[in-house]
Design a protein around this nucleic acid. Structure first.
Lengths: 251, 251
DNA sequence: TAGTGGTCTAGACCACAAA
DNA sequence: TTGTGGTCTAGACCACTAA
């Protein structure tokens, strides 16, 4: 099953035109995101890496720098380089799945699929995904539970053209991000989102088990692939009485 | 008046123990934050910098890398390195004043002081500011306007001990941050905040001119000084129908 | 064509952590 | 003392931009 890790290329290609440090970055990144290397594990030393890939130390460090900047690893002088532990702070800086998010908050996550199907892009959706109005979109609506209590409703819209047949999975179990990456090689690499408060509509209030008109924290997110193409338009309705965002700022 | 720029040291100290790239980074950073170099201005080329400071190109690039990462500059291959234009995206990463925030959104900001005085720290406030319950706090409550329409209510709590006499200013005009920095040498350098949605209390609804129970976006922020001491506990109630937060995420 | 930033090499010395 | 990451040098060739 662990096909990504098994198929993993262990060498770099000096004639591919792709910068060496990027190739090394990708190789290391995959080892981390595939969970082959766990949080706290020590990475090979810089010396070991430069020997393995036959590059200079500066090139190895450039690859590691990118991973540090991404928050995936951290360095300790005199000790080594280690896989980072995910932190809550990442909530407003990195794309985090509901499952990860809830685990970090100490809740047991659950999912109930409300509806799945194809729809034609509305004007709002078309604008978000940069496709023509009417383009075929995959629509997945899920109720998200925390410790078996409703926490959020997630409405996801994907460009069907980019991921045909994605509907054959069971999204109560399989994270959407994994399906996109494994089946279509699409990685959600960046996103923009807006956060606002609004009063729950009767339908949303009923699904979330709260009083009509209760305050809802709405997050709308447009995720783009590694090629910069919009892939998903996500609308999340969080219960205002249960869900709090947290982040850190600099002066 | 431009004392910072004038007093600016233009050389690096090779025996200070401070890494050369950090010294260059600081010098360049000051030129940008002091507005000596404006957004869009081209920085000296890497070659010019390495000659000026008599270091290797790698050292210059390390200094520039830090500025790029901070979002203060950007590079264009074949063209040069330029001072970045501030972006809205910084809203969720940097501490931004209401005034700056509104200007970026294209609104004309306004302020009305609702109340000013000393209070004794409640349990919540004491926990946030890490002081004993009952400690004397400065309390400033302001109504914030955008294009003359109510947008938010800000309730600010400061540790009085750290800024005695701060109440002698008029906070409809003077930004709190400026008063802290100019009069007490306190710079708000980092902060943590939470974001949630809740239903407006009758009092808040009335002040904001919205219907009772309308959805409000609440931001609570604890700001710390350059010494890591909590200085301000801020509660902001934004109108859900007018205020939207925006930010960018990475995969 | 000249000048810019992007990538890369093959070294070097250092501060720090752990044995 | 050994091995780690932190800093730094003095080059090199490349792709891209603009004149």
């Amino acid at each position: 099953m662990n096909s990504v890790a098994e198929m993993q290329q262990q060498h770099i290609n000096r004639s591919s035109g792709l910068p060496l440090y990027l190739q090394i970055y990708e190789l290391l990144r995959r080892r981390i995101t595939s969970d082959e290397w766990q949080p706290g594990d020590m990475l090979p030393t810089e010396t070991a890496l430069l020997e393995k890939y036959d590059v200079s130390r500066a090139t190895v460090r450039q690859a590691l720098d990118a991973l540090v900047q991404e928050g995936l690893i951290y360095r300790e002088r005199g000790r080594g380089t280690f896989v980072a532990h995910p932190t809550v702070e990442q909530g407003l800086v990195r794309i985090v799945s509901f499952t990860e998010d809830m685990r970090q908050r100490g809740f047991e996550p659950g999912t109930e699929v409300l509806s799945v199907g194809l729809v034609q892009a509305s004007e709002e959706q078309a604008r978000a995904l940069q496709v023509p109005v009417g383009e075929e979109l995959v629509h997945i609506e899920r109720l998200r539970l925390a410790d078996n209590e409703p926490m959020s409703i997630e409405a996801s819209f994907l460009v069907h053209r980019l991921c045909p047949n994605i509907l054959s999975h069971d999204y109560a179990v399989l994270p959407l991000r994994d399906a996109l990456e494994n089946d279509y090689g699409i990685r959600m690499e960046s996103a923009t989102q807006t956060i606002r408060a609004f009063n729950a509509s009767p339908r949303i209030a009923q699904k979330l088990g709260i009083r009509k008109s209760s305050a809802i924290l709405v997050i709308e997110r447009i995720s783009r692939s590694q090629y910069g193409v919009p892939v998903e338009f996500l609308q999340v309705y969080h219960r205002g009485d249960r869900y709090v965002l947290y982040n850190e700022l600099r002066g």
